[in-house]
């Protein structure tokens, strides 16, 4: 990458208090450039959501640093977020809690537009954003409960993108949606981000969707990145045993009736292994 990355995280550690303290993210570094879609995959409890929240500043860092452009990302607290940082937006997993139930969706998208205007953008029409995510522009006057889950998620995406972010962090944005809309919503997110020249960190446990939309993929296990690099390289030729197990366990929807391969209990021990060759894999 020749350009300066939009988002840089170095040696991020996230710990939760407890006895013993739970280290959810254990020294993860990543960099995302403008116009690049990076997927972060792994199973539940691997720390991928904690990492996403830490990157945005919702979670406090145990150690390490996160930079958005050249600004350090502060923890989201009582204070108003610095203006420059509204250039990083987030989409959450649960579409039902992502929108304020008491405000018209148009007004909520307008909040995004306002954030962009404050940073010097010319401004845009909320109805237009609805159209860009495939919804009726007249729906701006309606309330969130009048929409289905998939539609609400698209409204949340519209609100985030209306702020004209340079970086979009999406935490399992499709896993609460119906299977038939998952791929299309993910693909929509990709195309809108590319169009805007924004980078995207796309967190998911669904590898087959990720394969369709991500330029690069990071595979996370037990708080660490075990394999990373060009999506297709990882998919074609996984190096790390965890990535292999993960890919082998995905059922292939070809109707052949093949059972996915179940990893052996003993295999799980090899998954924490560090394999330098599995990192930073390039397209081949």
């Amino acid at each position: 990458m020749t350009t300066m990355p939009v988002l840089t995280a170095s040696d991020v550690v996230v710990e939760y208090r407890g006895r013993p303290p739970l280290r959810a993210v254990d020294g993860v570094s990543l960099a995302i450039a403008a116009g690049e879609v990076v997927a972060l995959v792994g199973e539940s409890g691997c720390g991928k959501s904690s990492l996403a929240r830490a990157v945005v500043g919702i979670e406090r860092l145990g150690s390490g640093s996160v930079k958005f452009g050249s600004d350090e990302v502060p923890v989201l607290g009582i204070r108003r977020r610095p203006l420059a940082l509204t250039g990083m937006q987030m989409v959450f997993q649960d579409p039902n809690s992502s929108l304020n139930p008491r405000r018209r969706v148009g007004d909520q998208i307008a909040d995004g537009v306002r954030a962009a205007v404050l940073r010097g953008d010319a401004g845009s029409d909320p109805a237009e954003w609805l159209e860009r995510v495939g919804l009726d522009p007249t729906a701006a006057r309606r309330y969130p409960h009048e929409f289905s889950g998939g539609q609400k998620q698209r409204i949340a995406i519209a609100r985030a993108l209306a702020a004209r972010p340079r970086m979009l962090v999406a935490d399992e944005p499709i896993s609460a949606l119906d299977a038939s809309t998952q791929t299309s919503v993910a693909a929509l997110m990709r195309s809108l981000c590319l169009e805007a020249g924004a980078g995207m960190l796309f967190i998911s446990h669904d590898l087959s969707v990720v394969r369709r939309i991500a330029d690069r993929t990071l595979v996370m296990y037990c708080g660490r990145i075990v394999e990373s690099g060009h999506t297709e390289s990882i998919w074609q030729n996984p190096v790390h045993p965890y990535t292999r197990a993960l890919l082998a366990a995905i059922p292939v929807p070809d109707g052949a009736g093949r059972l996915p391969i179940t990893p052996l209990e003993a295999d799980r021990l090899t998954w924490t292994e560090k394999i330098p060759d599995a990192l930073e894999r390039t397209a081949s």
Binding site: G134, S180, S191, P253, G255
Partner: peptide, 22 residues
């Protein structure tokens, strides 16, 4: 349903799916 399912025989490209969605 199969068109939107990655890996199925009838799978459509992400671009086509987005076009349909829009």
């Amino acid at each position: 349903l199969l068109a939107a399912l990655p890996g199925s025989k009838l799978e459509e490209s992400p671009e086509a799916l987005v076009a349909e969605l829009l």
